[in-house]
């Protein structure tokens, strides 16, 4: 027994060594980029630390910021729409049997499993077939489409934990359908709805492939801008942007986690 414990302490197992290497592998590229965002000169030759690229990012990149504004507009509008439609559908699918239920269930998972290129191309061809001009609206429609399955999935998962008797209890105690929805269902599933919404925001801010196909002139989002920077002349401003974006996502994620915890604790 004692010998066994000794053995365990004396060597790190193969699997945990792999795990630590993998974590290093995942972080090193980001770390390099962040490190060089504080480099004074261009390129990978370290000269000395400075905030030059951050100044450039904040004060001298108006088109980046307007792309970011587009990204935000798209993220919020599409996430709100997707959250609204997806939540209602999840409730309907979970609790009612009706014609078309199977169709909606199947179709709601597909956009999640098909490669992004397919979604992008099919929407591009669709929009040009029905002669809709590419622009903010088409991006909004595309983002709502790929966000919807995630809201639907997360709210459905939350509903699975939900005891349907509470809905019956509400009806039994005199609530009509809309009162039941407002006073019982929504308050109970709100954590699922919010995490779905947040997931939509992050995915929408991050999407490049689908947006690439359905964007038109003047409707470029931040990932599209980053793409053009990578493609046509890399500027270390990206390095600075990387760090800002990592910090941004971390802040959102942590505040949201805390928020979710308080919601969970209070219910």
């Amino acid at each position: 027994m004692i010998k066994h414990q000794y053995n365990k302490k004396s060597k790190i197992s193969f699997s945990s060594a792999m795990l630590y290497l993998t974590i290093i592998f995942l972080f090193v590229p980001l770390f390099v980029v962040v490190l060089f965002s504080f480099n004074d000169s261009k390129g990978m030759q370290w000269s000395h630390a400075s905030l030059f690229w951050y100044k450039k990012l904040i004060f001298e990149s108006p088109s980046l910021w307007s792309a970011f504004k587009n990204s935000l507009i798209i993220a919020f509008t599409s996430s709100i729409t997707a959250t609204f439609l997806g939540t209602l559908a999840a409730i309907g699918i979970k609790w009612y049997r009706f014609k078309g239920r199977n169709y909606i269930t199947t179709i709601s998972y597909l956009p999640m499993v098909l490669p992004e290129v397919i979604i992008g191309i099919s929407m591009l061809i669709f929009f040009s077939a029905v002669r809709v001009r590419l622009g903010m609206f088409t991006i909004f429609a595309a983002h709502t489409t790929f966000n919807l399955p995630f809201v639907f999935m997360m709210v459905s998962a939350r509903l699975d934990e939900f005891d349907y008797s509470t809905v019956e209890a509400a009806r039994d105690l005199g609530a009509n359908e809309s009162q039941t929805l407002r006073k019982v269902i929504i308050p109970t599933i709100i954590p699922g709805v919010l995490s779905g919404f947040l997931m939509c925001i992050t995915m929408s801010l991050e999407d490049f492939v689908i947006t690439f196909f359905v964007s038109g002139p003047g409707s470029g989002t931040l990932p599209l801008y980053v793409y053009s920077m990578i493609r046509y002349g890399v500027s270390p401003v990206i390095n600075a942007l990387t760090f800002v974006m990592i910090l941004g996502t971390m802040v959102i994620a942590f505040t949201f986690r805390r928020f979710l915890k308080t919601v969970a604790a209070s219910s």
Partner: peptide
Amino acid sequence: LPPDKRQSNTVFQTYALFPH
């Protein structure tokens, strides 16, 4: 009549209390 219009009320096996 829907449940909310009936003169009956139910006590559920799983309690069905509103968690919030």
